[in-house]
Amino acid sequence: MKLGFVTDPLGSRRAYNDPAVALMRAAQSHGHEVFAIQTPSLSWRRPEPGHAGGVFGEVLQMHLRPDDHDWYREVAREWRPLRFLDAVLVCIDPPADAEFFTATWLLERAEADGLRVFNRPRALREHSEKIATAEFAQFTPTTLITRHLRQLREFIDSERDVILKPVDGGEKVRVFRVHRNDRNRNAIAEALTDDGRRTIIAQRYLPEIDQGDKRILLIAGKVVPWCLARIPRAGETRGSLAAGGTGVAQELSPRDREIAETLAPQLLKRGLLLVGLDVIGDYLTGINVSHPGGMVELRQQSGFDAAGATISAIERVCGLT
């Protein structure tokens, strides 16, 4: 197959633990041709004489290498319609900003023209990493989503020890632990909400974060039996690897499996083939649908090849197996 990867600029990729690079390498090892379409080049044009129209971009054909410092060779580069590809995987990092939504709208046009896109563009738009958990409230900690400052003050008063964070953002998102008696609590809430103009999330603090913020992968409706527990460094409340956390592979707990097996079939029906759940202790805190990490570390520590399993799932959907 000819597999395309819609990705942020390649220069921003950290090959040693980047899931997009892992997926590209897996695709090549399965015998497929690998192409990258960097998001700034995604375009659409009306069909007319002299131009086929539709969604097109600058397409880079790649040969992947095992060296993380020099991880690919450019085979060819040209502007062309995406319809020549058999399938496209979307590997765009948060935040879900205007350019992210524009990319999904353009890819939805390509999908309408017959291109298979994983995950489906509409599903990417409809599943905010943090807010999507509200659909599965039976698994979430005590949570408030608001930009109303009085509501936030009352929530902090009632819950005593809370986490405040934006509704979007990547691994280095600003996360604050706030106690009821903190003198700066109101100032932090005002800053995060831009004085009530930006919605944020407040959640009861979960001390289980000390055992790790667990990333659980779902592939084609199946639950990967291992998770990556991202353990915060000393003095941190964030477990993400970008914030200095340490990733430790571990088998799923019964509660992890309950959460994952409940969500997996529902998310697959919506066109979400690859999903990363975030679970702290017994609680669901995030649903990552655009570029879930953790697969490189899982393979290194557990031997489970999540990238290869994802490519195999795409092969089945495309009728190759």
Rank of each mutant, 00 (worst) to 15 (best):
278 D>Y: 05
280 I>M: 06
316 R>N: 10
231 I>G: 00
186 N>F: 09
159 E>C: 06
88 V>P: 01
144 L>Y: 13
97 D>K: 13
296 V>F: 02
249 A>L: 07
275 V>G: 01
291 H>D: 04
101 F>W: 12
254 P>V: 03
30 H>K: 15
157 D>L: 13
280 I>L: 06
154 E>Y: 10
22 A>T: 08
206 L>Q: 02
146 T>P: 15
84 F>M: 12
62 M>T: 09
23 L>F: 05
35 F>Q: 07
214 K>R: 15
282 D>A: 14
317 V>D: 14
87 A>L: 08
156 I>H: 05
244 G>W: 09
221 G>Y: 11
230 R>N: 10
61 Q>C: 11
54 G>T: 13
216 I>P: 04
87 A>H: 09
280 I>D: 06
45 R>D: 03
124 L>T: 01
106 L>I: 08
128 S>R: 00
142 T>I: 14
310 T>G: 04
112 A>K: 14
77 R>T: 08
70 D>Y: 11
177 R>T: 01
113 D>W: 12
116 R>C: 09
156 I>Y: 06
196 G>E: 06
213 D>W: 06
44 W>I: 12
42 L>D: 01
52 A>L: 11
274 L>D: 00
312 S>F: 03
178 V>G: 02
267 L>I: 05
216 I>H: 08
193 T>N: 08
193 T>W: 11
250 Q>V: 03
119 N>C: 10
46 R>D: 04
188 I>R: 10
230 R>E: 07
5 F>P: 08
161 D>S: 10
244 G>P: 06
41 S>D: 09
285 T>D: 11
315 E>C: 06
43 S>D: 10
92 I>T: 05
183 R>M: 04
19 P>D: 04
122 R>I: 09
286 G>Q: 12
94 P>D: 12
82 L>D: 00
59 V>R: 04
24 M>D: 02
44 W>Q: 03
185 R>G: 03
49 P>D: 13
178 V>D: 02
294 G>R: 08
58 E>N: 14
299 R>P: 00
245 G>H: 06
207 P>C: 09
71 W>L: 06
86 D>K: 10
124 L>H: 00
200 I>Y: 03
29 S>A: 15
111 E>K: 14
62 M>P: 01
148 H>S: 09
198 R>H: 14
174 R>D: 07
321 T>D: 09
175 V>C: 07
138 Q>H: 14
263 L>T: 02
178 V>M: 09
209 I>H: 00
256 D>F: 05
121 P>T: 11
305 D>A: 10
256 D>V: 07
143 T>K: 11
34 V>P: 12
36 A>V: 15
133 T>D: 08
210 D>K: 13
80 R>F: 03
20 A>V: 13
130 K>F: 01
247 G>D: 05
42 L>G: 01
21 V>F: 15
174 R>P: 00
296 V>R: 14
34 V>Q: 02
57 G>Q: 08
164 L>E: 01
